[in-house]
Design a protein around this nucleic acid. Structure first.
Length: 259
DNA sequence: ATGACGGTGTGGCACCGA
C-alpha cells in the first residue's frame, strides 16, 4: 500500500491539482497540510467522488490538516491531547489494512519564524508536547506513521545551503534536537532508509527561481514505527506537481509499504 | 535586505509562510 503527505498551501486553490495527482497516483491515503479553509468549505464531495473518505480539521486562512483514505477512518483525534492550541495542526486516525490497523498522525508543524521569537518559543513547546504525546501513542499503536510538514531540515544534507543558513529557522540545534528526539522514540525516517539522489528537497521558495535552481529544503517527512520499518519498500519525493502552473511550494512525499 | 513569491482577508495594503 502507498501513503503520501503533501502541504498544498490552500486546498481552495490546489483542489484540481490534488484530484489530478490522486488520479495519477492512487495512493491508499493522502495527508494534507495547510488547507487554509474551514471545515464547512472542505470539498468533501469532490474527494468522495474520487474515492476517498476524509477526516478534516480545518481552519480559516491558516493551517488546517486532513487525511484522505480509500478505506474508512476511525478514532479521529485532532491536535495534541492536553496541549491547548488555537491552531489546527494535527489530525490522527486509524485505517484498517489487510495487515491490521494502521495509525496515521498527520502534522503541520509550527514554522517558528525566527529563533528567539515568541513563535519560536511556541514551536519548542509544540514539539515537546508532540514528543510527549507520541511516546504514549507508540505504546498504544505499534504500527504508527507520523507524517507531514515538519518544518525542520533534519541534517545538513536536507538543506541547499547548510553553512549559509546555519542557526536560522529550520536549521537550529534546538529544532534538530527535537527531530532526533522523535527518532529516539523509535521512529524512522523512511526517506533515509534508502539510497537517494543528492540534493533532494521537498520544499522550494517561490522566490528567486528557487525550484529551478534547486535551492530547497527537505522538511516533509514520513516517519514509521519500529514495527513498520521492515515493511517500507520505497520512499520518494514527487517533484512533478512543483512544475505545475500555480504549484504548491511543497512536493508530495510517497511511501510504499509491503502488503 | 526594507527585497523576492504566493495565499488570504481586506481594502488599495498587511500579514504570514519557510
Amino acid at each position: 500500500m502507498k501513503l503520501a503527505t503533501w502541504n498544498i498551501n490552500s486546498l481552495t486553490v490546489r483542489l484540481p491539482q490534488v484530484l489530478d495527482w490522486l488520479a495519477a497516483n492512487p495512493v491508499d491515503a493522502l495527508c494534507l497540510q495547510e488547507l487554509k479553509l474551514s471545515d464547512d468549505k472542505f470539498p468533501r464531495d469532490a474527494l468522495q467522488q474520487a474515492g476517498y473518505h476524509c477526516a478534516v480539521f480545518g481552519q480559516k486562512t491558516y493551517n488546517g490538516v486532513a487525511i484522505l483514505s480509500r478505506t474508512p477512518l476511525r478514532e479521529v483525534v485532532t491536535n495534541i491531547p492536553g496541549f491547548a492550541d488555537e491552531q489546527s495542526r494535527v489530525i490522527a486516525a486509524t485505517l484498517d489494512t489487510p495487515r491490521g490497523p494502521l495509525r496515521l498522525v498527520n502534522g503541520y508543524f509550527v514554522n517558528g519564524q525566527e529563533p528567539g521569537s515568541e513563535k519560536f518559543a511556541y514551536k519548542m513547546r509544540w514539539l515537546q508536547a508532540l514528543q510527549d504525546w507520541l511516546r504514549g501513542e507508540l505504546a498504544v499503536h505499534p504500527e504508527l506513521v507520523v507524517l507531514g510538514d515538519f518544518n525542520v531540515a533534519a541534517e545538513d544534507r536536507d538543506s541547499w545551503d547548510p553553512e549559509g543558513l546555519r542557526d536560522t529557522i529550520h536549521h537550529t540545534v534546538q529544532e534538530r534536537e527535537h527531530f532526533r528526539a522523535l527518532l529516539q522514540l523509535g521512529l524512522h525516517d523512511s526517506y533515509r532508509m534508502f539510497e537517494q539522489p543528492e540534493k533532494t528537497y521537498s520544499w522550494w521558495d517561490y522566490r528567486e527561481f528557487a525550484f529551478r535552481r534547486n535551492r530547497g529544503l527537505r522538511i516533509d517527512y514520513v516517519l514509521v514505527s519500529e514495527a513498520l520499518k521492515a515493511r517500507v519498500t520505497a520512499c520518494t519525493i514527487d517533484k512533478a506537481p512543483r512544475k505545475n502552473e500555480r504549484p504548491s511550494d511543497h512536493a508530495p512525499v510517497v511511501v510504499e509499504l509491503a502488503d
